[in-house]
């Protein structure tokens, strides 16, 4: 083990943390909105909507993220009609492609989590709401959403951790986040084990903080809830 090298590279690798977190943050936010939409489609009575949502989830969950990234980044760029369209303004940017891939991925997984959460809302609660004269929107806001969030939070916490881990793949499309910087250092020092231990520890630390944060949120939400 070359500890001095590990110490030096630590300070280089942490410069990738902002990009990693930016990608996690943006994809999570976009992905969550998309997930709610997909989940609502999935539970809707409209066959076309629910089928579309089913196959979207099926495809994303059934294929490796790396392959999805390659498909979006290199596969779509192959066509000149795409490169000449307005889409290229977005697809040209590796960062956009990375965020798009992760957004679609987290949307598919989160949609299932949200669906599970929604289905855990006992019909009696909703009936109680309507018998009190609550409107549909009010019931959604006051009854369904709070219960769904509380139910879905532990699983969603796991999903967040999966997202942090997934960002390591975007280094393959030229983005210099934690893994990207680590790879660059390895190509100069030929010390893959040492450098990847440093990078791995940084991911572990980020995920530890996220886990604590989710635990705290769970505690706050469950505190005072009547089960």
């Amino acid at each position: 083990m070359r500890f001095e090298l590990m110490y030096d590279s630590f300070f280089k690798i942490i410069q990738g943390i902002p990009l990693t977190l930016e990608v996690v943050f943006l994809s999570t936010i976009f992905g969550l909105f998309l997930a709610v939409g997909v989940a609502l489609m999935r539970v809707s009575n409209n066959k076309i909507f629910s089928n579309f949502a089913y196959y979207f989830i099926y495809t994303i969950r059934g294929t490796p993220l790396l392959l999805q990234l390659f498909f979006i980044y290199y596969g779509l760029a192959q066509f000149s009609f795409i490169r000449e369209s307005f889409l290229w303004f977005f697809l040209e940017d590796p960062l956009f492609c990375g965020i798009l891939t992760l957004t679609l991925s987290t949307a598919a997984y989160s949609a299932e989590i949200i669906r599970g959460g929604m289905q855990s809302v006992a019909p009696a609660y909703i009936e109680a709401g309507s018998s009190m004269g609550m409107s549909k929107m009010l019931r959604l806001r006051k009854i369904i959403l709070p219960i769904t969030i509380r139910q879905a939070l532990p699983a969603y916490g796991n999903e967040l951790i999966l997202m942090v881990k997934a960002t390591s793949l975007i280094s393959i499309v030229t983005l210099m986040e934690i893994t990207g910087i680590a790879r660059t250092i390895i190509s100069k020092t030929y010390a893959p084990v040492e450098i990847f231990i440093v990078a791995g520890s940084i991911y572990l630390l980020i995920n530890f903080i996220i886990t604590r944060f989710i635990k705290y949120a769970e505690y706050r939400l469950n505190h005072g809830s009547i089960q």
Partner: peptide, 16 residues
């Protein structure tokens, strides 16, 4: 450790 570190890194570490 295994669930908190990206799979790619785990594979690289075990490979090298």
């Amino acid at each position: 450790v295994v669930r908190g570190v990206p799979e790619l890194l785990v594979i690289y570490l075990l490979f090298f």
